[in-house]
Design a protein around this nucleic acid. Structure first.
Lengths: 140, 140
DNA sequence: ATTTGTGCAAATCGTTTGCATCTGA
DNA sequence: TCAGATGCAAACGATTTGCACAAAT
């Protein structure tokens, strides 16, 4: 952790470019978040995974960090499950499949869904993003 | 409340057909829910509105009832806001616009959004429904 | 040195639950 | 009668907050 290998420098840079100070915790959490491709994590899940990797960060800091990262465009919040908030490491345009009863989220590539031009946005509002959620359940 | 006017009978019938006993509270809440066209309510909002109309129902019963109604197909749960759960009195196929920062949900008629046939559903799963959420924010 | 971030524990908020009591069929 | 509903208060789980301490610029 005191040995700045190349990937760690990347993480620090990415944080700086996002306007966030590269603190030890933020760098570590970025490392955990982006260690294995894109995924959807809850605060609790990130906390556990960080602990397992020997990264000791309080849950309060996890929540702070997740929201800071979301504000900085590093993460995206996914609201499909009223029970808890998921954060998506993929901030590119894509959609989701949600497995009801299992609290599981799967990605759908943007190209898999064709929508015509978006419906009218009321005056005074601007589109942030359009997302599609396929709710599925296990058969039988 | 002891005078069974026509609309009250309708409500009672609708509850019976849904397999729910038409108790005083359920009939009253249906009355409140469907008094003014379709809308999106939280448990808290329904509780307040019921109180204002002199319908005294505990919050616990509100939650029970909302879930029973959802299970019976009288209401639909809308998960767009990770902060709280909204219930939609419109159970027909349609979509939503969510105003970020204002906790406000607007309807988009199904016809306003054209999607091609849905993406592949993984084996062992079946589609419950496909919904589109347009996230918008107030300009500036 | 100053500003910003972190950790902890307590507080908050939406929601659920256990249980005694009531009510509709 | 009696299964099913309700109300209350307490329990719960996810998230936020206040504040003293620590770390980054």
């Amino acid at each position: 952790m005191t040995c700045p290998t190349a990937p760690v420098l990347d993480l620090r840079d990415r944080l700086r470019r996002a306007g966030l100070r590269p603190t030890r915790q933020r760098v570590s959490l970025m490392g955990v978040l982006f260690a294995k491709g894109h995924r959807h994590l809850t605060a609790e899940a990130l906390h556990e995974e960080a602990s397992q990797r020997g990264v000791r960060v309080s849950l309060a800091t996890i929540y702070n960090t997740l929201h800071q990262f979301t504000g900085a465009g590093i993460l995206r919040e996914v609201a499909v499950d009223s029970a808890k908030t998921y954060f998506d490491t993929n901030t590119h345009n894509h959609h989701h499949m949600f497995v009801e009863g299992e609290h599981r989220i799967l990605d759908i590539p943007a190209e898999a869904v064709q929508l015509d031009e978006s419906p009218d946005i009321p005056d005074g509002f601007e589109l942030v993003r359009m997302e599609v959620v396929l709710r599925v359940r296990r058969k039988q």
